[in-house]
Structure formats: structure tokens, C-alpha cells
Design a protein around this nucleic acid. Structure first.
Lengths: 248, 248
DNA sequence: ACGAGTTTGTTCTCCAGTTCACAAACTCCT
DNA sequence: AGGAGTTTGTGAACTGGAGAACAAACTCGT
């Protein structure tokens, strides 16, 4: 299976192991996909710091993972490193970006311009990664007067026209839980096929639509569980301010 | 492929390596812990709707999981159901809440009162689940004049006093990435042992401190990857190398 | 009281993901 | 050129979790 294709030594973009019309589907594991953005960020940081080459060990440390896992993850994309040397930061950065799809422009709509919607609209991390917010939608008429992050808030009934006009594939739901499913249904009908859901509810979507949820209170509850655990297992009932780091 | 080698018959002892000195360690799998808050919310919704009893099938549907998985998850907590009947909604809700720890009061500090910090401070889902925001901290002096969600924003240098005073174990970081590690270090020094990180950076913490991260742009990037995939596998075998996303 | 029907709790099997370990491949030094 | 030193890429074992299947335990009707 391993197509031992040789690359010209030192050639950055000389021979592309990835043909432009690749018919094969590399089938990258889901867990790896979730880590690729982390690697991408670490590589960008390294590039900004002037680093041109890095080993899997360095990059793994920067990304907070184990180096073996990093290498295995990268191996799903192809052989972009050089044995005995490491990875070319810029080259690898581009390859990961291309694989994830952030070299393209992704128009995004945000629905629900409350506190969270405001924060999301103003979040700079979206635009810098290829996500362009093309519309902010809210059902409340009083919000539609506002201008947020340089965009006028529009009525939710404009969703079909806006999604069609900008070819929006990704929608962000930041509404109250009660409205989320209805909003989701409308988005899907309008043509959105990927949804990032901040509302604390489980969304039902048809086949072919991806949903990812970000749930703030769930994250805190998971922390609380472990915190409670620590408290129970704490041998020192006093004010243990000093913590011991010991190898298990 | 060839069948993976099964366990040597009789070779390994099947006795649990369970220490007899730790009687109260139910060792709940991490994946289960992450789902318990979802079950809790589903149960609360059922209770609000007046339901007093539910089957694993009903609850699983409400939580968006498979019923076998739900039952297995609940079995780690104990036998709180009745065969042939189902689960008492209120009783199970309490048991899960107790297991997670949300029956207690968890004081929380939020550091970084920008757009996101504002939204988090105003998020009602925290207080309703036992998380009490006791302080909002920000390094910028101009923000310290503000009052957000009924709390005056305080300077970050008050962190030690506030954490000690309210016995804060959980901290939320909503600062820019550049400040996150320094803030994290200060929080840990002050006594915080669980951190929810919204800053787009990898935090290094000593042993015994838990970190969970919520990364908005990573979530979008994961969606973009799958979206790109869908586009490539599009039913229309045209020449469109750019994103052609019409499912008319 | 007893059998039929229902639903939980648990066991078993399977799969994805992680980690280990090492050959292959590259650079550098002599 | 050749050997020593590095570092990648990957086969293989190992771990944890998911799902199917089923016995145990309960209710209800007769």
C-alpha cells in the first residue's frame, strides 16, 4: 500500500505527492482531523517566531501531544517530512491548511446575536483562518437595528436568500435552546450542511449534515466532576497549597 | 485483516488490580463522564415536562445517544433503575447531579472580560448548574471601571486574595492567547486546580491541575474539513475544483 | 399465583485510537 | 566514500470505548 514515492531532496514544492485530481480518499481518522488545527496553529506560531524547520518532537511539544502520535497523524496526510532532518515549517503548514480546507474561503452565517453571538461576530480568529462572516441573523426586530462587527443584523427570514447568495455551507447557532432546533431546520432547508451549535440542546439533523456542539456548562461540569474527585481523594484536609509533582 | 490475537486463555489473571484500600472509587470512564451532563439536562427537561418515569430508550433519544450506551453509562453510577419499569426521573436526576458534583456550589472566577468574557459572565447556564461566578478579572485598568453581570471587574492582581477568600477551585480563561499562559500560572499558584481555557493556545500546567479547552476556530476547521470532503465527493463529477456546493 | 411481557444491567465481541519500537532514509564528519 | 548520529514513517501490540445480545428482575393480567 505504501507508495514509496521519492521526493527530490530539498525540494519544497518540486514534486507534489498529491495529484490535483486525486480520486482516492485518504480517509483520515476523526481523532486526527480534530488535532490538525492544533498542529496548524503550532506551525504558524513557529513560523512567526522565524523557525524554518522543526522536528516532530518540537512540534509535538508545541501542540501538547506525544511525538509518536504527531508523526502518525501527519503520516495520514503523506510524507511531508525529511528523515534525519524534520519538517519544513512553511511547507507542512501549507499542506495541513490545504487538507483541512482553510486555504479556501468559507462563508459563515451566525444566528442569534445575543451576548455570545456578539462575541463570536467579533472573534478575530475566524477571519484569520478563512472563515468569513457574511451575515448576522436574529429574530428579534430590535436587534436588527444594531450594527455588530461592521455588519447590520438582519432578520432571520432573510436566511434563505443570504445562504443562497453567498453559497453558505456553515452556520453557527447561538440562540437560546428553545429556538435552536427550529433555526437548525431552517438553516438546513436553506442549504447549510455544517452547523456549529452553541445552544445547550441536542439537534436532530438529516443525513449528510454535520453538527458539532460547544457546550460551556458541560465543560464546567466535567471539570467539577474531576474536582470533586480530587477533593475526595485528598489525603490532606488542610489548606494544601503546595502540590506535589511526582511520576506515577 | 487477520484476527487480532485474543487474550491468552487462562494466561492472565482476571482478578482486578483494584486496591482494597480504595473502596469509594467507582472509576467512571472519561467518555461517560462527558455524557453525564447531557443526561442531566435531558432529565431536567423531562422533569419540567412533568414526566416522572422514563425508559432508557426515551432518555437516550432525548440525549441523542444509543440506549445501550446510556444504560452502560448509568450502570457505572449504580443500579438506579427498575427492571421492567425504567428510571424515576427525579431520582436519577439527583443521582447524576450528585455524581458530577453540581449539587454543590462551585465558585468560579473568569479572567479576561472582553467580548467573550462578557458573554460568559452573563451566561445563565452556569448559575443554574451550581457554578457561581465570584469574580471577574481583567488586567486592563479601563475595564475595571465596568460592571458586568452585576459584578465589578477587578484587577488581575487581586487574584490571590479572591481565590483564597472564596476557595475558588475553577478558573475560566478568556484572555487573548498571548496572555493565557501567564494567567494560567497565576491562577494555579493562587490555588485553582481546574481551568477552562477559551484562549487559542496550549496551556502547560503542573500535575494535578485539569485543563479543558474550548476552541471556536478549531471546531469550525473540523467542520470545514468535512465540508470540503462532501464537496469533493459531490455527485456532480464536473471540473469544479473550487467549492461547488449546490444540492438543489 | 403464575406466565407473558417489558426493561434494566452486564457480558462479550469488535473497532478506533494510542503507544511502542524499529527499519528506512537523510545529514554530517572524518 | 563510509560510518555515526538523527529523525521520520509505519507495522504491531495494547487500550478504551461502542454496540449487540441476553439473563435477571420487575409489572400486569388472568
Amino acid at each position: 500500500m505504501s507508495a514509496t514515492r521519492r521526493r527530490a531532496p530539498g525540494g519544497r514544492d518540486e514534486s507534489r505527492p498529491h495529484e490535483p485530481g486525486t480520486p482516492a480518499t485518504p480517509v483520515i481518522p476523526e481523532a486526527t482531523v480534530a488535532r490538525l488545527p492544533v498542529y496548524l496553529r503550532a506551525l504558524t506560531a513557529l513560523a512567526d517566531a522565524g523557525t524554518t524547520t522543526c522536528s516532530s518532537e518540537e512540534l509535538a511539544t508545541a501542540a501538547g501531544v506525544n511525538s509518536a502520535k504527531l508523526r502518525k497523524d501527519l503520516s495520514y496526510l503523506g510524507s511531508y517530512g525529511t528523515r534525519g532532518v524534520g519538517y519544513d515549517v512553511e511547507y507542512l503548514r501549507y499542506q495541513i491548511a490545504r487538507e483541512i480546507g482553510v486555504t479556501q474561503d468559507w462563508p459563515v452565517v451566525i444566528v442569534g446575536i445575543g451576548n455570545l453571538g456578539h462575541a463570536l461576530a467579533n472573534f478575530s480568529g475566524f477571519r484569520s483562518r478563512g472563515f468569513r462572516i457574511v451575515a448576522l441573523l436574529d429574530a428579534a426586530p430590535e436587534r436588527q437595528q444594531e450594527e455588530v462587527a461592521g455588519l447590520r443584523v438582519r432578520g432571520f427570514d432573510e436566511v434563505d436568500a443570504l445562504v443562497a447568495e453567498h453559497q453558505v455551507a456553515i452556520g453557527v447557532i447561538a440562540t437560546p435552546a428553545a429556538a435552536a432546533q427550529a433555526v437548525c431546520d431552517r438553516l438546513v432547508t436553506a442549504g447549510v450542511t455544517s452547523i456549529l451549535n452553541f445552544a445547550p440542546t441536542v439537534l436532530a439533523v438529516p443525513e449528510g449534515v454535520d453538527v458539532r456542539k460547544v457546550d460551556l456548562s458541560i465543560e464546567l461540569q466535567i471539570l467539577a466532576y474531576h474536582e470533586q474527585r480530587k477533593a475526595h481523594a485528598a489525603p490532606i484536609p488542610g489548606e494544601g497549597l503546595d502540590r506535589v509533582e511526582e511520576s506515577a
